[in-house]
Design a binder for these strands. Structure first.
Lengths: 131, 131
DNA sequence: TCAGTTGTTCGTAAAGTACGAACTATGGAA
DNA sequence: TTCCATAGTTCGTACTTTACGAACAACTGA
């Protein structure tokens, strides 16, 4: 027995796709993770985000989220002892897709800010129209 | 029998989410559709895109893609006789998430341009590193 | 060697997606 | 009117993706 773990996959910058990036960031947990990592100045471990995100999340699920971010090219993960240090690859991506990540992060902040200030009275906000 | 069709759903601008927008645009067919619509100055029918996209695509699938774009708040669809006229809601979204769609469209163009100019020799481009 | 911690992998159940067939909606011709 | 053609939608089914618990791997320190 004792089957070794698969090596971590980091796509080269040239094979990163817009679709892949958008898909990776189209999940609430993953944008939250990525936004936090982009905000932090230094590398962070996976378990750090269990505190950042309110929802309690199984660690296997968290691990999959990190894998998705990694294989989309958004982050780089490196084993450091027993834990995993994660950093964003924002500089590389900025070079290839200028302005993409800043715009997404900004939109994410806008949305967070709105959620913090809920329930404006006397508006029709929040209703979908069927027409 | 004769069950009427469900009305089209257009979310109000306040309920559009970043995740929803990113998810809708994380599909190759849907970004292509959206990019083409954003490029065209006027409203376009669904079947227009059968020519834009190289792949032959079943119309039921195409219909689902339009529904996804519509319910993410990216486009507005209106029946005009036998066909459906689609327009982007980019002005609204620009107001709520400034710079988001332009950045995505720009990244999409970058990627298209690279695909048009393939195979640069003597590079290691395209290889994923396992480390 | 053993225990503790951090993260990954695997199996299965649940959710999402693609596509053909059947249908609705509309306009125009007979 | 009735019939036909065209543009999209809906539904059923097969396929793919995702979530999560249990078991495992990788590493540290006692």
């Amino acid at each position: 027995m004792l089957v070794p773990m698969k090596p971590l996959i980091h796509p080269s910058i040239d094979t990163i796709t817009v679709e892949g990036v958008l898909h990776a960031l189209s999940d609430p947990v993953r944008v939250a993770i990525y936004a936090d990592m982009a905000g932090a100045g230094c590398a962070q471990t996976c378990s750090t985000f269990l505190q950042v995100i309110d929802r309690s999340i199984p660690k296997s699920t968290l691990s999959q989220h990190f894998r998705t971010l990694r294989e989309a090219g958004l982050i780089r993960s490196e084993r450091q002892g027993v834990e995993m240090l994660n950093t964003t690859r924002c500089a590389e991506i900025e070079q290839r897709f200028p302005g993409l990540l800043p715009a997404i992060m900004n939109a994410h902040r806008v949305q967070l800010a709105e959620k913090a200030r809920p329930a404006r009275r006397k508006t029709t906000a929040g209703k979908a129209r069927a027409d």
